[in-house]
Simulated assay, not measured.
Amino acid sequence: MFGINGGELLILLLVAALVVGPERLPAYAEQLAGWVRQLRDVARDTKDRVDAELGVDDVDWAALDPRRYDPRRIVRDALLDDPPPRTPSRPATPRPGRSRPTAGGAAATGAATSAFAGAAGPPDAGAPAPFDDEAT
């Protein structure tokens, strides 16, 4: 710190105590303690405000430590996780009066390559959208 070692700092503090004198030394020490307290409060308030503004209150910093990065564990955890169960939002029921040709039927007739080419007109407003399992 400023090129001053421990012995020189001790001598400077002793000289300052002698110059200030025993009458004013307690008042100066109390004033210095107040300044340190205010500086610490300002630093803490600033840190709290920055954390609140950035939204980092709920970040698990230990989990983001690069020393804990292990690609083998990440791959193992990803492979062992069970995928969430797929549940259809609404059971597929055929609409009355319309039939959906299958991909094999459309290809066999040579009409078109799309599985939905045989449907006449746009789908009804309340009908579920066509969904292809193999496309996604």
Results as ranks from 00 to 15, higher is better:
E23L: 15
A33I: 01
T109F: 01
R95C: 04
L12P: 00
D70V: 02
P88H: 03
D77R: 12
P85H: 05
A108G: 02
F2Y: 12
D65H: 02
I74W: 01
A120M: 10
V36I: 15
I74Q: 10
R40A: 13
G126H: 09
V19M: 14
P96V: 08
F116T: 08
G126R: 08
P22L: 09
V19T: 07
I11V: 06
T87K: 11
P66F: 03
D132R: 11
D51I: 04
A108Y: 08
P94A: 15
R90A: 03
D57E: 14
I74M: 11
D133S: 06
D133V: 07
I4P: 03
R73A: 12
G34K: 15
A29E: 09
R73K: 14
F116I: 10
A108R: 15
A33M: 13
D45T: 12
N5C: 02
E53G: 03
L14P: 00
D45G: 05
A92S: 09
D58V: 00
D70F: 01
G104I: 01
M1A: 11
T93Y: 04
A129C: 05
I4G: 00
P94M: 14
E30M: 08
A92L: 10
S99H: 05
D45P: 00
A103M: 06
T102K: 07
D45A: 10
P71E: 13
D133K: 07
A103I: 04
A17F: 04
V50M: 13
P85W: 02
A127F: 09
A52V: 01
K47T: 08
R68D: 07
D57T: 12
V59Y: 05
G118W: 10
P84L: 10
G105K: 07
G104V: 01
D45N: 12
D124N: 06
G97R: 08
R44S: 14
I11A: 14
D48H: 03
L12K: 10
I74Y: 04
V42S: 09
P85M: 09
A117L: 01
P91K: 09
R98W: 11
A108V: 11
G126E: 15
L64N: 04
D124V: 03
A63K: 12
P26I: 08
A78C: 00
V50K: 06
L54R: 13
D60E: 11
D51M: 11
T46D: 10
